[in-house]
């Protein structure tokens, strides 16, 4: 059964249609990649699913029930969490404090602290527990975004460009973490610009352009799809 179903989701900001009639579903245990040019509506889609900016029309179902209008923190408790493309930092807290807060979603405080330390180690931030997130490098900030998501014990994670801005070598760690998570049964939906990363990870892909879904299929099919090539490289001049 599909864990996450997006059905005819439209999002308008005033006269601007940021998402138009987008539908797709994500099966339990899948890694779905979402790609599309800048401004295609990928982050808006994540905001619509995760409760930060509910859709103007259409339905989003998680585990069979509609989640339109459910607040983000309730969704986190139900097991659906998103990361942010622009890393969200907390000025006056250590990385351990931040991840502990996330872990408090399902654990009493002492357990949450231990679990947060464990999660930080797992994403590769061991030894950086007592730094403030502001002083972390970009790579470490992205790993912290990942750690925050992990600490809430999610069933489904929406990852918004966790690899963007990293060098290929730097993406190894997050890729390994995402793989391992998925092996443990966590469903993953990821928006990503870095094509080699998403080609490696995704089991299926959805392509969005100008707020509409233009293609869906396996990574191998997607790269051959004419619509996708047009969207990324411009249309052929057939005249």
């Amino acid at each position: 059964m599909a864990l996450l179903e997006v059905e005819k989701v439209t999002k308008r900001f005033g006269g601007l249609v940021a998402l138009n009639d987008v539908s797709f579903s994500v099966a339990q245990g899948e890694i779905l990649g979402i790609i599309g040019p800048n401004g295609a509506g990928k982050t808006t889609l994540f905001s619509a699913i995760s409760g930060f900016a509910p859709p103007s029309s259409g339905d989003v179902r998680f585990d069979g029930t509609s989640i339109v209008g459910v607040l983000p923190d309730r969704l986190v408790r139900r097991g659906l969490i998103r990361s942010f493309q622009i890393v969200q930092t907390f000025a006056d807290m250590t990385t351990l404090d931040v991840v502990t807060t996330a872990a408090l979603t399902r654990r009493p405080i002492r357990e949450a602290i231990d679990y947060a330390a464990h999660v930080l180690g797992r994403v590769g931030l061991a030894g950086k527990e007592h730094l403030t997130p502001l002083t972390l490098s970009l790579q470490d900030k992205k790993l912290l975004e990942l750690a925050k998501c992990l600490a809430t014990d999610p069933r489904c994670i929406l990852l918004d460009e966790v690899m963007a801005g990293l060098t290929m070598a730097e993406t190894d760690k997050p890729i390994a973490v995402v793989r391992e998570l998925n092996r443990q049964g966590v469903t993953i939906v990821m928006v990503e610009h870095v094509m080699p990363v998403i080609m490696q990870l995704a089991t299926r892909m959805v392509v969005i352009n100008f707020g509409e879904k233009i293609a869906e299929g396996s990574p191998a099919d997607i790269v051959k799809d004419q619509h996708v090539i047009d969207a990324y490289f411009g249309e052929h001049l057939d005249a």
């Binding site: 995760s50 942010f84 807290m93 408090l104």
Partner: peptide, 14 residues
Amino acid sequence: RTIRDNENAARAIG
């Protein structure tokens, strides 16, 4: 403390 630093980010972690 998370609410003080960043209300939206606080909401995002539950």
